[in-house]
């Protein structure tokens, strides 16, 4: 029931947004800071992939880091 209500709400929200497009509240000319390379989530992909791999070798947790890899080196 709750899922249906959620779905209904979601479709209403999507429907409403289709009729009146959402105005971007951060204007293109205000995005200088956001566009700065230091604001990227994965600024240095190889060292990040490496660090993720190291953690995966030692820890059970995996995933949702934004990268992907193969093999483990931990048998």
């Amino acid at each position: 029931m709750r899922a249906r209500l959620l779905l209904l709400g979601l479709s209403l929200a999507i429907g409403a947004s289709a009729c009146s497009p959402i105005e971007p509240w951060v204007k293109p000319y205000e995005r200088e800071n956001i566009a700065d390379p230091i604001m990227a989530f994965n600024r240095d992909p190889i060292s990040q992939a490496y660090i993720d791999h190291v953690y995966e070798v030692r820890e059970a947790a995996r995933g949702a880091t934004g990268g992907s890899g193969g093999g483990c080196g931990c048998n």
Binding site: E23, P24, W25, S68, G69, G70, G71, N75
Partner: peptide, 28 residues
């Protein structure tokens, strides 16, 4: 789209991946 091959003396892993990203709402 991508492909990764990882080799060790006793372990070989082949991984293929596909992804799509889309920007919406005035790129926000």
């Amino acid at each position: 789209l991508g492909y990764i091959r990882s080799s060790e003396s006793d372990y070989q892993a082949d991984t293929a991946f596909f992804g799509v990203s889309q920007s919406l709402f005035g790129d926000l």
